[in-house]
Amino acid sequence: MPLHPRIADFLADLPAPPDGPLDPQIMRAVEESQVPAPADRLPLHRVEDTVATTPVGDVPVRIYTPVETDSYGLLVYFHGGAFFLGSLDTHDHVARNLAKATGLKVISVGYRRAPEAAFPAGLDDCLAVVRWAADHGDTLGWDGTTLALAGDSSGGTFVAAVAALAHDEGFDRITHQILYYPSLDLDFDTERYPSLRDNAEGYGVETAGLKGFNSFYLDSGADPADPRVSPIKRDDLTGLPPALIVTAEYDPMRDEGELYGARLTEAGIPATVRRYAGANHGFVQNFSWIPEFAGVFEETAQFLRGDLPTRQEQ
């Protein structure tokens, strides 16, 4: 189907990007200026900011408790933003919707970003908070069952990388991995995936801009050949947690996410790939209010419960 008309209208009204190099500080300020006031956000039982004290340092986290009950499963969420954008605030609504739909206590991670923090600082923070959550299960009210990871875009990159690193380190408590339109191959060679050519222009995130948007991360020492940076380059995917991979029809990075799902399946890992028709990169963050896309959070909940129907496209 064509790009959803509401997305198309939004993109048509976007101003042309400014000339010259990207300025992280200006771009972050623009993002933060669009965050709704706390009173206008989805209400939950409790939302609290705290710090996870970990071996790699203190990491800001925001904890979302959907309802009051004796115990909870946990979901650790990594926001997107090409490794230099995004924050606890810009993705607050995603974490709130995840908590409401799943009934899990969500821990959103304020990891260190490029270019100020060199690779692998952000990745280290994400892995450390997952371990912190398991170690502080009593304090968090964890029921000892679900410990899921979720992330969108570059946050999905971190989900795949953290799941693999945890497995390599013998940390086997992660139960699920959820990747929304992940960036899994930072090579950006346009010949690698048809979607890099088919969706190259006109859909918000453009193929020609991918290298520039990720340059802050790559220039900080992240090597695209390193599976911690490009998780699709990992040779052995056995032993990883079951995965839900959500892709968007009009996303240059669509095919790498879907290939990763196929490779997980080949490795014997249960992997469900959901391609949302008419959607573009970022739709979970930007357009989940559109009825055709709002079900992504309930589908996430179904995946975590183990009763997601085996459809491949929405």
Rank of each mutant, 00 (worst) to 15 (best):
P2D: 09
R6Q: 14
A8Y: 00
A8F: 00
F10S: 12
F10P: 01
P18L: 13
P21F: 08
R28Y: 06
A29T: 13
V30Q: 12
S33E: 12
D40K: 03
R46Y: 00
R46D: 09
E48I: 06
E48Q: 11
T54S: 09
V56Y: 01
G57S: 09
I63L: 13
I63Q: 09
I63A: 11
P66A: 03
V67D: 13
E68K: 12
Y72W: 11
G73L: 05
L74G: 08
G80H: 00
G81V: 01
F83S: 04
F84L: 06
G86L: 01
G86A: 02
L88K: 05
T90D: 06
D92S: 06
H93L: 12
A101K: 03
T102L: 10
L104M: 14
R112M: 09
A114V: 06
A114G: 07
P115V: 08
P115S: 11
A118G: 01
F119H: 15
L123R: 06
L123V: 07
V130W: 04
A133L: 07
A134K: 08
D135T: 11
D138L: 12
D138V: 14
G144V: 11
A150Q: 12
A150G: 12
G155H: 03
A164W: 08
D168W: 03
D168E: 14
E169F: 01
D172R: 10
I174C: 11
H176W: 05
Y180N: 09
L186C: 12
D187E: 13
D189T: 13
T190G: 08
R192Q: 13
R192S: 15
Y193D: 11
P194V: 07
A200E: 10
A200W: 03
G202Q: 02
E206K: 00
E206Y: 00
L210A: 02
K211S: 09
F213L: 14
F216K: 02
L218S: 05
L218Y: 07
D219I: 02
S220L: 04
G221A: 08
A225G: 14
D226M: 10
R228W: 04
R228C: 06
S230L: 07
I232V: 15
R234K: 14
L237Y: 12
T238F: 06
P242F: 05
T247P: 03
A248D: 00
A248Q: 00
Y250T: 00
M253D: 00
G261L: 07
R263S: 03
L264M: 13
I269K: 03
P270I: 09
A271E: 02
T272H: 15
T272S: 08
A277D: 14
A277S: 14
A279G: 03
F283W: 08
V284Q: 12
Q285E: 15
N286R: 06
S288W: 07
W289T: 14
I290D: 04
I290R: 02
A294S: 15
A294C: 08
G295L: 09
F297M: 09
F297S: 07
F297Y: 15
E298L: 08
T300R: 06
L304R: 01
R305G: 13
R305H: 11
P309T: 07
Q314G: 11
